[in-house]
């Protein structure tokens, strides 16, 4: 029983002094062991800088602060990837709401879209990451349980059709609601973006997303210097840091400049239709008004901006 040992700390009690000394030694040893255990963190210090640590949320940054941040990111890309990149920040276009449609009758499952995404968005080479996952589905239903995203045989295979899935840019996005720190939000043109410098990497959004659209940077992305896409934007395809979430942005660095997204340009069959939902003359509007389109998991009430249809 410890009680017999627990003596009243009376002044000049020798045992107490010795015990106190032992405790001091113990505490010192403990602190030293603690420092040793935490040593791997020291190896991070060269990557960490105070400016990045103290950087405010993207939407709180003034134009001047943004310029400083973008310059720092460009220097980081040079230092860490030996790539000369420019970081832009295209603003949403007024009266534009982006929408995407995909013709499942035409898609042949060639994964050219996923490949283009991989290159355009500076994804990690080792994991062959892409925001698009193409599912080989069995004819006769839309049953993902019979789907397979890792097929590797000539396409289109008989009896199969193909269903590429990427971010649906939901109007009622569960990921945005989930994020505890507003590191992900919906832009005025409907694109759900992530501030890679604000995200703490809790992955609640990844759990909340019903479409497996979000990706986490489990480690620092590896890209050879010559393969880095130098045309980058802060909210989309710049090389992401380790430990943060990322997602499809409908290539906002392209689409906000009026260009088509990379996945659409890569599509050899024209299964993909992209445009402004507010423009009654746009291709996307024609598809929605004339084709029998559907959205994935409509019952969840997420109101996707990504439509599928068969001819």
């Amino acid at each position: 029983m410890s009680d017999s040992q627990v003596q009243l700390p009376i002044i000049d009690q020798p045992q107490s002094n010795r015990r106190g000394f032992m405790k001091t030694v113990g505490a010192t040893l403990g602190l030293a062991a603690w420092a040793a255990a935490m040593k791997p963190l020291l190896e991070l210090t060269e990557d960490v800088n105070a400016d990045e640590f103290l950087q405010n949320h993207y939407r709180e940054l003034t134009a001047e602060q943004k310029a400083v941040v973008f310059k720092r990111l460009e220097e980081d890309a040079k230092k860490e990837y030996n790539a000369d990149v420019t970081i832009s920040d295209p603003a949403p276009i007024e009266n534009v709401q982006f929408g995407y449609a995909l013709n499942l009758s035409v898609c042949i499952g060639c994964r050219k879209c996923a490949e283009a995404c991989h290159i355009e968005n500076n994804h990690d080479r080792a994991s062959n990451n892409s925001y698009i996952r193409v599912f080989e589905m069995e004819m006769g239903g839309i049953d993902f349980e019979k789907g397979n995203a890792t097929y590797d045989h000539p396409v289109p295979a008989p009896g199969k059709y193909y269903m590429p899935v990427q971010c649906q840019q939901c109007e009622n996005a569960p990921c945005v609601t989930a994020c505890p720190i507003e590191a992900t939000w919906k832009e005025p043109d409907g694109i759900v973006v992530v501030d890679y410098n604000w995200c703490i990497g809790c992955r609640y959004c990844e759990a909340a997303c019903p479409y497996h659209a979000r990706r986490f940077n489990w480690e620092k992305p590896e890209i050879p210097a010559e393969e880095v896409n130098p045309n980058q934007s802060y909210l989309s395809n710049r090389i992401r840091p380790q430990g943060v979430m990322e997602k499809c942005t409908f290539c906002l660095h392209r689409t906000r400049e009026g260009r088509l997204p990379a996945c659409l340009e890569a599509c050899p069959t024209g299964a993909r239709v992209f445009g402004n939902l507010l423009d009654p003359d746009s291709e996307i509007r024609w598809v929605i008004e004339n084709k029998r389109t559907f959205v994935l998991k409509e019952e969840l009430g997420t109101k996707p901006r990504f439509f599928y249809y068969f001819d």
């Binding site: 013709n103 009026g258 340009e265 239709v273 291709e283």
Partner: peptide, 18 residues
């Protein structure tokens, strides 16, 4: 479908004003 942009690949701009 082709005339309405929903068949056949394309590149360039979705926004023809740009």
């Amino acid at each position: 479908d082709y005339q309405h942009g929903s068949h056949g690949g394309m590149t360039g701009y979705w926004d023809l004003t740009k």
